[in-house]
Design a protein around this nucleic acid. Structure first.
Length: 897
RNA sequence: GGGCCAGUGGCGGAAUGGUAUACGCAACGGACUUAAAAUCCGUGGCCGCAAGGCGUGUGGGUUCAACUCCCACCUGGCCCACCA
């Protein structure tokens, strides 16, 4: 009997909407506990819904439905992350306003999501491009601008609480402003940015990973630009440490930690000598420290300060500010060569750097650095294998102990000194002998000699624990001598927050010649995104907003003098960094959400999203939340992490296991699937397709199996409805099964209660595929059987989260008027799970030889004789001496002969 | 180069250290039908007539017992990548 989804599904979708079945209850009107389930709100692209979207939406829908049936007040909201490039690019191409494109896409997505019967609370729908929404994004930006990071307290605090040091104050108003600006959580900085020449847009490091534009896939260049930045690096430590408080998949935590990239080491000062005494860095252990010649210091970061003795040269990133300084002061002799190299390195995209890892570099002639441990003069080079953005942008090169340095040294014939014999280092420090003494004594340093390839990584010194001990001692020594200090660095960089594009939130700042950057008055929010004639980005690197003269012209909120609006917009990540807060109280006019609502709903109980967002969105939104939390905009009872649990879904691949793509022509359209099979089959199939956290290929054949399954459920439902009716009207129906007495135990009882147990546990554990298979097993068992009326109700309830329309229909046919989705989730009866007998497997020497049916919980004394008598076993035991018998109750008995 | 994950029938996939292959797909045999589709019943790891043997990527190890735990490796996928 086929399940008539075409009539049934639209009917109930309309009814749920009218009834508000899935609306979260106002916390002031209920004493219920809350459950906040969240999926990453979609970007409404022109492509429409991908079959991958419903996989996670349905999964969290199922959990939300179960929680609701378990008595929770459920918040399962939906909205649109609608600012951003694809829409803007499409708008440019088709010459339409992006807002219009967005509205169209949202309408299409809404239609598609609604046809799937997902239990979203549409009364809380939000849209990041809605001024009522981005008003608060802008408001939050102002809060970022108006706060600073207190290192001691490890938290953001309002600007008003920043104490300006006396000596700064003495230097006047400009100095104070500069000081304050240097501390802000949102600040403007000239940075080398990743520039995509095709999209004409600055990209965050995260969006330019691999030297390739995240948007268009083209190569990325470097450009210098003043950009708004958010000081996420200040939170690096907390973003790692506070992961302790949350339940994320371990791999998610790992990738966050790796992305932040914490490393411990030391900052070491290298004094720079001009007019060096020696051309060659030959051994000169007692080079006089003539401070008159030493006019600057280069700080390097290293994780291996213990190898300092082996530092035979130094390398700066080509962009290192000191290089420019030295060029200007004439300290560098080979100016032409150095400048040429700088230009070349600057033009090179990250992609080219990656493809060609051949080391290049130029020595800075006329300068030497002094190795603070050996006191020897060492050459200074610039090379693009040193990155300006990490550490100090300068390294001490230890070719004997670092592969990259080794390669470089080999190529440019630089000295390689191996630091050997860790025990000697112990002696040096314990005996308190001077370093130069150590050099001549046990501490052997091979100077100016070539060592064979491979030795760099095979040194005894690198083995075992000695390294970490040596590092510790070295740092103690550096700090004592005041030439270095312990230092922690991170790969994480500050968040580039400006985009030179149209379709984003305007940054609510104006620039005044007198007062500098000033936020607009909060009463002027939202600062509306004005309409422009052309959305194309300009070649000058300015946003199209810059072309609207009237809009750019503004008044300084402080001095009322003429000012100029910021014309850059915010990145796509802005709106998605806090949307889960707005869901708590989406219609609030006075605040982004009331404390009352936040206290009730936050934190999110279950957040699901793709692995592709674990390093960007997840990190950004945790950071954003922490800043708001620190500033007191989120009640402290919510805790300082926004998401209690984070899980990830995997992809649905095309048939054959390759990624779906238009070019491959293997894209499955949800519209067609729902048209053909209905929403319930589609949902249930996506849950059955495989383990939730693993990629799984779509199969047009397999979905048929799920259709058959729901047809069977429908048939069981219809048969039992007739049976229930016959009890009332006394007519004989198609069922040949006798009436069911509520007191009698039924042949289906065991499987039935096993199913209640397993389905419940599997939903909670996100094992949807095995939950569906268990429902299949039960449904097969129930073929042609009449159920107790209570069991029939429980059966429909178990189906309800997976196939909500079908279940609702059966429920109403049964004479109920309320929604099944508001009914209580069934509970299993422990006593019904007890079986009387079990089959015990019999092994001889670990090989399966037979089985025997025995009463449950039989002891060895009962089972062993029975097992020995089994004919299939007996022949293996006859004439053998049984050495040992292992018996595992209700499972197995193993004879060792 | 680094990190993470996976490898089980023809296919998607099940298995708290205890009878490997549940559930589904495809296949095959049968029923129903004028016929097909749909539906229903049945069969099924591999070799072998059988007894039996062999089987969860490969090789070791721990154990009475390993898909499961440990070590080494192979293959595939994803992410990151000159991060000092």
């Amino acid at each position: 009997m086929a399940y008539p989804f075409k009539e049934i599904e639209p009917k109930w979708q309309a009814w749920w909407e009218k009834q508000g079945t899935y609306h979260a209850k106002d916390p002031s009107e209920t004493g219920q506990e809350k459950f906040y389930g969240l999926i990453e709100f979609p970007y409404p692209s022109g492509e429409g819904l991908h079959v991958g979207h419903p996989r996670s939406y349905t999964a969290i829908d199922i959990i939300s439905r179960k929680r609701r049936m378990q008595g929770k007040n459920v918040l399962y909201p939906i909205g649109w992350d609608a600012f951003g490039l694809p829409t803007e690019n499409f708008a440019i191409k088709t010459k339409q306003p992006p807002a219009k494109v967005t509205a169209k896409n949202v309408a299409n997505f809404t239609r598609q999501i609604k046809m799937l019967g997902l239990g979203f609370d549409w009364s809380r729908e939000i849209n990041t491009t809605d001024p009522e929404y981005y008003k608060w994004t802008q408001w939050m930006f102002i809060k970022f601008f108006d706060s600073w990071f207190d290192e001691k307290m490890q938290k953001a605090r309002p600007m008003a609480e920043l104490v300006v040091p006396k000596e700064v104050e003495d230097r006047g108003a400009d100095a104070v402003r500069e000081y304050r600006d240097s501390k802000r959580m949102a600040f403007k900085q000239k940075t080398v940015i990743n520039w995509c020449p095709k999209d004409k847009i600055g990209l965050a490091n995260e969006e330019a990973a691999g030297g390739v534009c995240d948007r268009c896939g083209g190569p990325v260049e470097k450009r210098e630009k003043e950009q708004w930045m958010l000081r996420i690096t200040a939170y690096a430590e907390r973003l790692i440490k506070e992961l302790d408080q949350v339940d994320y998949l371990e791999k998610i935590k790992t990738s966050q930690v790796n992305w932040i990239g914490r490393s411990e080491g030391a900052l070491i000062d290298f004094v720079i000598a001009r007019n060096p005494m020696t051309k060659q860095s030959t051994v000169d252990c007692h080079a006089p420290s003539n401070s008159a010649r030493n006019d600057s210091v280069v700080k390097v970061f290293t994780t291996r300060p213990d190898t300092l003795f082996g530092a035979t040269y130094m390398v700066l990133a080509p962009e290192h500010p000191l290089v420019a300084e030295w060029l200007e002061s004439g300290a560098i002799k080979n100016v032409k060569e150095v400048k040429a190299y700088q230009t070349k390195a600057n033009k090179k995209s990250d992609l080219e750097r990656q493809e060609n890892k051949e080391k290049t570099g130029v020595e800075l002639e006329g300068l030497k650095a002094i190795n603070p441990a050996t006191k020897k003069e060492i050459p200074i080079w610039i090379a693009d294998y040193v990155l300006s953005g990490y550490g100090t942008g300068a390294i001490m090169a230890v070719p004997a102990h670092d592969e990259r340095d080794f390669e470089f040294a080999k190529k440019f014939k630089l000295p390689i000194m191996e630091v050997v014999k860790a025990p000697a280092l112990d002696k040096v420090f314990n005996a308190d002998v001077s370093v130069s003494e150590a050099l001549q004594g046990e501490f052997r340093v091979k100077a100016d000699c070539w060592v064979g390839e491979g030795i760099a990584t095979n040194s005894e010194f690198l083995d075992g624990l000695e390294t970490s001990k040596a590092i510790e001692k070295m740092i103690v020594w550096l700090e004592k001598e005041k030439i270095g200090e312990k230092k922690v660095t991170y790969k994480l960089r500050d968040w580039v927050f400006s985009r030179q594009r149209y379709w984003g939130e305007p940054i609510p700042m104006v620039h005044c010649d007198h007062c500098g950057w000033v936020p607009i008055d909060e009463s002027e929010l939202p600062l509306l995104l004005p309409e422009v004639k052309a959305y194309e980005p300009t070649d000058t690197g300015e946003s199209p907003l810059a072309t609207i003269k009237d809009w750019v012209k503004a008044k300084c909120p402080i001095c009322k003098g003429p000012a100029r609006r910021e014309t850059d917009t915010m990145p796509n990540w802005a709106g998605s960094s806090w949307y889960f807060l707005r869901y708590c109280d989406p219609h609030n006019q006075d605040h982004f959400a009331s404390d009352f609502a936040l206290k009730y709903w936050m934190p999110v109980d279950l957040y699901n999203g793709g692995m592709e967002h674990t390093t960007l969105h997840l990190l950004y939104s945790r950071f954003w939340y922490k800043v708001l939390f620190d500033l007191g905009h989120i009640p402290s009872s919510c805790g300082n992490e926004p998401y209690k649990v984070r899980r990830s879904h995997a992809m649905i691949l095309g048939e054959g296991g390759i990624k779906m793509s238009k070019s491959k022509g293997n894209v499955v359209n949800p519209d067609e699937m729902v048209e053909k099979f209905g929403a319930d089959v589609f949902r249930t199939y996506e849950m059955f397709i495989g383990p939730y956290d693993m990629d799984a290929p779509w199969s047009d054949k397999d979905i048929q199996g799920v259709r058959r399954f729901l047809d069977k459920v429908w048939a069981v439902g219809q048969a039992n409805l007739e049976h229930q009716a016959s009890k009332t009207d006394g007519k004989t129906r198609t069922l040949s099964v006798p009436g069911v007495d509520a007191e009698d135990s039924q042949p289906y009882d065991l499987v039935f209660h096993q199913t209640i147990k397993k389905v419940g546990e599997d939903i909670d554990g996100l094992h949807f595929n095995t939950a569906v298979s268990q429902l299949m097993i039960l449904t097969n068992e129930l073929q042609g059987k009449a159920l107790r009326s209570l069991d029939f109700r429980s059966y429909i309830k178990m189906i309800a989260p997976f196939a909500p329309h079908l279940a609702e229909e059966l429920w109403h046919q049964l004479g109920n008027e309320n929604s099944i989705h508001l009914e209580a989730w069934p509970e299993y009866d422990e006593t019904k799970l007890v079986v009387e007998s079990v089959t015990v497997a019999i092994q001889v020497n670990g090989k399966l030889r037979g089985e025997v049916k025995v009463k449950i919980d039989s002891d060895q004394a009962t089972v062993q004789p029975a097992a020995e008598q089994e004919p299939s076993v007996k022949k293996y035991l006859d004439g053998q001496k049984v050495k040992k018998v292992i018996y595992v109750k209700n499972k197995i008995i193993n004879f060792i002969v």
